[in-house]
Amino acid sequence: MNDKDKKFVMGGLIVAIIIAILAPFLASANPDGLESAAEKVLLVEEVEPMFEAPLPDYLVPALGESPLGGVISIVLGTIIAFLAMVGLATTARWFKSESNGN
């Protein structure tokens, strides 16, 4: 990765993390389109999630509803998404060099 690419990655990550920090304060708490539609037309009973997520609803359980929990969750998620994407894309490319080697 050259300097130009490094700069782009840093700049892009900074933009993403600024959005992540602002999101708990600026995001609308209204139900989203699917939730809103479900409130009006749902034909089945709502159920509990099948799987207990560690940071449910982008909040840190120990911090309750405080926006700080939201900031921590969304910043953490942004970094996890970044790293997971690097991992998956690098793995896909690694298979290329493998097949080229033969």
Binding site: M1, S28, M85
Partner: peptide, 28 residues
């Protein structure tokens, strides 16, 4: 050079998906 671009977009999309925008009808 497009692996980092893809990763930056994944980070950006994760963050922006948390930013619900209000629309009419009490929805976002």
């Amino acid at each position: 050079k497009r692996v980092p671009l893809m990763a930056v977009l994944a980070a950006f999309i994760f963050a922006i998906q948390a930013m619900n925008i209000p629309i009419p009808w009490g929805t976002s």
